[in-house]
């Protein structure tokens, strides 16, 4: 399973964050020694130290490469516009001018407000209905099982549908419902588009979750709502957190729907505003990069705070799904 020198001990499998035992800890060495004729302990220790350094160096290099594009954008955002074309690597002539341009052009507060309103409503609706249907499809007893699995398939089939096929029809639907030109024009499609993925995660989690607690609650006389709210939801907190975070990220990043369904600049989300950068800044690359950074950094900062939940949630949901 790994190229690490020592075989994994149960402790490290369950807790990767635990501090690594010192290199060449006695227990580790002994186990190795039992299987292979050991070279001199000193040479072996050095060999392993070197291997570990190589592995770590490699990991840092990859991470650096992945982060590099973002660093590059941040560097450009401090560069004077004419420098970007002539000498972009120079750090002697950095300026805040681009940020002044960008802040003057961008309705940042409005963008964030719109996005947060839309995300809150869409994610609340999407998560609630997904949870309800997932619970029904995994826990409740249908008179006909076929209906149950057919319904699950029906929802999961949505995973394979590219949203682009929905754009035009949903627009017509929004109009027919009289919600075009309001936040709801995108809130409802966002909520619905999240149902397949949410259902995948939630049913996956529910299937792997032992039912004893629920049975105990039912024996105690709990009804459906109390069962869900006081017993199931608390246990599902991590996966629900994942669902919420994923859906929020989706709404923050979504472009095709919002570009068709929102035509009022006062209702524009962050993504929609970003798509206009190339038009607004045309050849003012510095301004464009500063605007991009102003959108990027808050998102990354929020992610930095919440990333543990995303990763923990994925562990529980996606893999078991």
């Amino acid at each position: 399973m790994s190229t690490r020198s020592a075989p994994p001990s149960p402790a490290t499998v369950h807790d990767r964050q635990a501090p690594a035992p010192p290199v060449g800890a006695p227990g580790v060495r002994r186990r190795r020694a039992a299987h292979r004729p050991a070279p001199s302990p000193d040479a072996e220790r050095r060999r392993r130290l070197r291997a570990r350094l190589v592995v770590a160096g490699f990991a840092y290099l990859i991470v650096f490469l992945v982060v590099l594009p973002i660093l590059w954008i941040v560097l450009l955002s401090f560069q004077q516009s004419d420098q970007i074309l002539s000498d972009p690597f120079s750090v002697r002539t950095l300026t805040l001018e681009n940020y002044r341009d960008a802040i003057a052009t961008l309705p940042l507060v409005q963008m964030y407000k719109n996005t947060i309103i839309i995300a809150t409503a869409a994610v609340t609706i999407g998560t609630t209905v997904s949870f309800m249907v997932s619970f029904a499809l995994t826990r409740m007893v249908f008179r006909r099982r076929g209906v149950q699995s057919a319904l699950l398939l029906y929802f999961l089939a949505g995973l394979a549908v590219p949203v682009y096929v929905l754009l035009f029809p949903v627009y017509r639907l929004d109009l027919a419902l009289g919600i075009f030109g309001t936040y709801a024009a995108v809130i409802l499609p966002y909520a619905v588009v999240s149902i397949p993925f949410n259902t995948l995660l939630l049913t996956g989690f529910l299937r792997g979750m032992p039912g004893e607690l629920e049975e105990a609650a039912i024996i105690d006389g709990a009804g459906l709502f109390r069962l869900c709210w006081s017993v199931v939801v608390p246990v599902m907190r991590p996966i629900l957190a994942t669902v919420v975070i994923f859906n929020v990220v989706y709404v923050f990043n979504e472009f095709p729907f919002v570009s068709v369904l929102i035509n009022d600049p006062d209702l524009a989300t962050i993504s929609l505003a970003v798509s206009k950068f190339q038009g607004q800044y045309s050849v003012n690359y510095g301004g464009m990069m500063a605007a991009a950074t102003l959108v990027l950094l808050p998102q990354l900062a929020i992610y930095a705070v919440l990333q543990r939940h995303v990763i923990a949630g994925l562990t529980a949901g996606a893999v078991k799904g």
């Binding site: 409503a121 609340t124 609706i125 609630t128 209905v129 709801a184 809130i187 409802l188 709990a222 009804g223 459906l224 709502f225 109390r226 069962l227 709210w229």
Partner: peptide, 17 residues
């Protein structure tokens, strides 16, 4: 009891929408 709660939850979601 719980059925009413369930409906209330639904009603709340619908009202929000």
């Amino acid at each position: 009891q719980p059925r009413r709660h369930g409906r209330r939850g639904l009603a709340a979601a619908a009202a929000l929408a």
